[in-house]
Design a protein around this nucleic acid. Structure first.
Length: 348
DNA sequence: TGGATTTGACCCGA
DNA sequence: TCGGGTCAAATCCA
């Protein structure tokens, strides 16, 4: 890991090369798609998005200087540094026995895990719990009173943690100022869909999806959980391409951005005039059950939270494609027929 | 009975 | 030393 911390060394060159190569490949795919009338517009748009993201990432690599370059690297490193990480038994640090890893916390370096904080206002208009599913299943593993906070913070991790080694976790804390606002902090990345993909769940291609009635954004919100981000007008051109897939993301440099984390404000939401989740009326675990099922992450924010760099717009760009559906894990885990997989979107 | 939740204890980083 | 994050046993629930 330390090797990667050199300034503008091989890592950046490789990253740059990788991104440019990827962009080239995507461009070729796009070219092929354009020659096939059967290709859906969504596919084409998706490829364009992919292409743009590659260029964005390449540019970000180029424009990073010594200080700022570190963020994504740091994340990359931090996610892999742990000797207890999955599949990392060959780590130089593996002299720390496996038993130690088992006995001790796997997340010793939790502080360095990439985090993304979202400030969301949620409401459950339909009251249909099943429709609250965001495609990921969360399991609560802890709750803690936070100093200075009126409400406890709930800790959730992906249900597939054991089965698929998915390290995604999220924290849910009710806002003191506004009980209808929750701070959601996502840590780690969902890998469960990748595992399910490798296990032979092939292949629900995007094309196949495109041929079926795709969930419109409206339908995506049919369950009542709504998130609005600010400055949509000013940034729509950047996300417009993803409209069929996701809700526009908040610009990272928005007013509500909190340095270090990406804070997405859901304030000022004109269309959030719905009743509050009934679950919240049953304390003390007001958010526990609710957020075990509800997450705004599929509004273009899940799974790609490995970049906390506020200057890296590719986070935003790349986030959208992975939110292509609200489908359960197995549905969107595979874009293989589409020419690339989610792994291509992986920052690691 | 198995999965999910609760909760006290432990561990780590600041 | 303290607060936050996680573990794991106990408990709950369908």
């Amino acid at each position: 890991m330390e090797k990667r911390k050199g300034t503008m060394g091989n890592w950046d060159q490789k990253a740059l090369t990788s991104e440019l190569t990827q962009g080239k490949e995507v461009a070729e795919q796009l070219k092929n798609h354009l020659h096939h009338s059967s290709s859906s517009q969504e596919e084409t748009e998706f490829l364009i998005a992919k292409l743009l993201s590659s260029y964005e990432k390449a540019l970000s690599v180029l424009t990073r200087d010594g200080s700022s370059e570190g963020e994504s690297k740091q994340i990359q490193g931090s996610m892999l540094d742990s000797p207890c990480s999955f599949g990392n038994s060959s780590s130089p640090l593996s002299d720390i026995s496996d038993q130690d890893c088992k006995n001790k916390n796997v997340f010793k370096k939790r502080k360095t895990m990439p985090k993304r904080t979202e400030q969301v206002k949620v409401c459950a208009g339909t009251g249909q719990d099943e429709s609250l599913n965001d495609g990921f299943s969360w399991r609560k593993y802890g709750q803690k009173d936070i100093l200075g906070a009126n409400h406890p913070r709930g800790y959730y991790r992906c249900t597939h943690r054991n089965t698929a080694g998915c390290l995604a976790t999220k924290q849910v804390q009710k806002s003191d100022a506004d009980p209808t606002i929750f701070m959601l902090t996502y840590t780690g990345e969902h890998t469960c869909h990748l595992v399910s993909q490798s296990k032979g769940k092939k292949n629900v291609s995007l094309k196949q999806e495109a041929e079926t009635p795709r969930q419109s954004p409206e339908k995506s919100f049919s369950f009542g959980l709504r998130v609005k981000t600010e400055d949509l007008d000013t940034r729509e051109e950047g996300n417009e391409i993803f409209r069929p897939f996701s809700f526009p993301s908040t610009p990272i440099e928005s007013e509500n951005n909190v340095v270090g984390d990406l804070v997405f404000s859901a304030m000022e939401n004109d269309f959030m005039h719905c009743s509050y989740a009934p679950t919240f009326g049953s304390p003390p675990t007001f958010e526990s059950d609710y957020f075990a099922a509800v997450s705004p992450c599929h509004f273009g924010l899940v799974g790609n939270d490995v970049q906390t760099s506020e200057s890296d717009l590719t986070h935003e760009i790349l986030s959208a494609p992975t939110s292509v559906t609200n489908s359960p894990i197995g549905d969107f885990g595979d874009f293989g027929d589409f020419g690339f997989s989610l792994e291509d979107l992986d920052f690691y």
